[in-house]
Design a protein around this nucleic acid. Sequence first.
DNA 1: GTGATGACGCAGT
DNA 2: GACTGCGCCATCA
Length: 108
Amino acid sequence: MKIPFYYDQVYDVVGMIPPGRVTTYGHIADYLALGSARMVGYALRNATNMCQDLPAHRVVNHKGDLSGRANFEPPQRMQELLEQEGILIENDKVTHFKKLLWVPSHHL
DNA sequence: GTGATGACGCAGT
DNA sequence: GACTGCGCCATCA
């Protein structure tokens, strides 16, 4: 299966998110400087279904909310994976989100 | 080619 | 802090 050009870009950024940290769609989009935050989420939607190795659970929206958990096969899986890395989830939102936030460009 | 969709983000109120 | 509306642009029908 051919992977759309945008998806591969997202995989690379998401794949370099350090464990125990999270990032937002906007930051990824800004780092890629290709499209918008919507494109990131759009790409991840296929990514999760396609590449289970992809730590898409570390990607949340600008509110720190697990907006895409419903897209995971078991929606509960996303929260489980985050807690597994030490990230606490409350009311489907990342606790201390700003502290755990990791910015791609900041990593350079 | 046209129209609608979407795991979002931001400005305005 | 909350809600509303608009922009974003690749992908799908």
